[in-house]
Nucleic acid binder design. Structure first.
Length: 466
RNA sequence: GGCCCCAUCGUCUAAUGGUUAGGACAACGCUCUUUCAAGGCGUAAAUACGGGUUCGAUUCCCGUUGGGGCCGCCA
């Protein structure tokens, strides 16, 4: 397909764990950049480590991306490209830019220990580099002495001393390439214009530049985005709690909320007018419109999940009742939840953080747990009076035909009493009796969910507490 | 330890030499209200420190301190 320009970007996840929010953000930045410039967004599964790569994780990556709406234009798997790597490996070997190293892992570990003790960077300058053996692993013959300069689009020039890198590993053998090599080959083969990846890769970049030079590749533009951090400011990892996108999906976070949340972690659109409330809720299209690499932050960002909760509530509130029902219904799993007509679900729309909260709420309404009489008397209510009110409510509601019993008919029937006693004096005891809680959905919404017999039963229970 | 990166409210950030240093989340308060939530209004809260440059530094330079990342036959 002909593109109007040659912007091509990718994410290169390894299927060794579930797709997590850090990867989601890197994916989003790449995707936004591609969409903004009419370029291509590519997903490349880096599964060269056969031991640790699992099909299950690859499925999770593709499903999570699809859920977020970050659908790739092209998709590759490194395990299917062995011949390509082999070709380049043979070329490097033939040109003596790479060599076989027969040192054992134990030998290398000892060397590394020695170097660390001597206060040096552990790096292996191999004495096999000109030995012309054909056993062991394949290493890059690093003869570079001039500083390697990364022209990073966010950080400017970053300089590395290549003598500190040593003869780094390229492949276990001709059939088993390693990260720095396979990654470099693919970025060229797939014609990547930019490499937008996490800051934790900065120290890999000089190695990849070296490989690229040896192979005569043109370099992509490097862009290292800051890391997502846990609350202790260290790189986000499992010990910081839920990370996998699938977990948030399962709890009923909306993909648009998730996207909006991660977009604003380390990136921000240009300032609005001074003094004006600055908007933070942006649609996908708005993000594409506003996005630019230059506005990505340099410092790492702590992923504070309270903000995600807020975004989710915002997006939930914006849903129409019909959309809300469609989205919430799959999260209704309990028998209690299934008894409630779907049309009533929007009652919870402005009260929940995640879609899975609806089921929880319904269960706690239907399974009334015991409560203190104080709940009925909150706000200096007089016991005898509340008791009288409940009796009166009981009387009025009992007379409603069970067939016609609903929030609407209950409201009509109680209207005279409400007018006489005041809204709070009637509705608080009613609501508290039906929910057993100080905080709940409204009294007539409760009436809608509960059968007449149950409403009557709960009112009697309440009265007997007083 | 070596190399590299970074530094504005608790958190995410705005302000690219001139602002009463702005907004959002969270917190707290008030208001609305039958409660809670939602909504509205408001309060508290930051330029890490020290030197320069400049008429003037959040902003530019240097240093210090602090934090982080990487140092694999993982990616």
């Amino acid at each position: 397909m002909n593109k109007t320009n040659n912007i091509r970007v990718r994410i290169a996840p390894s299927p060794t764990g579930f797709f997590h929010i850090g990867t989601a953000r890197t994916a989003l930045f790449n995707w936004l950049f591609a969409r903004k410039h009419g370029g291509a967004f590519i997903v490349r599964i880096e599964d060269t480590d056969r031991e640790r790569s699992k099909a299950e994780f690859e499925v999770d990556i593709t499903e999570s991306l699809e859920w977020l709406g970050l659908v790739p234009d092209e998709f590759y798997r490194q395990s299917e490209r062995t011949e390509i790597y082999k070709k380049y490996l043979e070329k490097l070997l033939k040109e003596r830019k790479a060599f076989y190293c027969a040192h054992s892992i134990e030998e290398l570990e000892q060397e590394s220990e020695r170097q660390k003790k001597a206060g040096q960077v552990p790096c292996h300058l191999c004495d096999d580099r000109d030995a012309r053996i054909t056993e062991g692993i394949i290493r890059f013959k690093n003869n570079e002495t001039d500083a390697i300069i990364i022209g990073d689009l966010i950080r400017g020039e970053i300089r590395f001393d290549p003598r500190l890198i040593g003869d780094f590993a390229l492949a276990r053998n001709l059939e088993e390439p390693l990260y720095n090599f396979a990654n470099t080959v693919d970025d060229r083969e797939m014609d990547m214009s930019h490499v937008i990846r996490g800051e934790d890769h900065i120290s890999n970049t000089p190695k990849q530049i070296l490989v690229g030079r040896a192979l005569g590749f043109t370099q992509p533009r490097w862009t290292h985005v800051p890391l997502l951090l846990g609350s202790d400011r260290s790189k986000l990892s499992k010990r910081h709690g839920a990370l996998a996108v699938r977990e948030y999906r399962a709890q009923g976070y909306l993909p648009e909320a998730m996207l909006n949340f991660v977009a604003l972690l380390g990136w921000h659109p240009p300032a609005g007018k001074r003094g004006e409330r600055e908007r933070e809720v942006f649609s996908r299209d708005e993000l594409i419109e506003l996005f630019s690499l230059e506005r990505i932050q340099k410092a790492g960002a702590i992923a504070e999940m309270q903000k995600l909760d807020w975004f989710n509530r915002e997006y939930l509130k914006k849903l129409s009742d019909k959309e809300f029902i469609d989205r919430a219904a799959p999260f209704i799993s309990s028998p209690e939840g299934k008894r409630v007509p779907k049309e009533l679900l929007p009652i919870f729309k402005k009260r929940i953080t995640r879609l899975s909260d609806v089921d929880q709420e319904i269960r706690s309404i239907i399974n009334l747990s015991d409560y203190e009489a104080g709940v009925l008397l909150k706000g200096d209510r007089e016991g005898a009076h509340v008791c009288m009110i409940i009796d009166t409510i009981l009387n009025i509601l009992s007379r409603i035909d069970p067939q016609k019993f609903s929030g609407v008919t209950a409201r009509e029937a109680l209207d005279p009493l409400v007018k006489k006693e005041g809204i709070g004096s009637v509705l608080w005891p009613l609501r508290a009796s039906l929910s057993g809680k100080e905080v709940s959905i409204g009294p007539f919404e409760l009436v809608d969910i509960l059968e007449k017999d149950e409403v009557v039963r709960r009112l009697i229970v309440a009265r007997n507490k007083l």
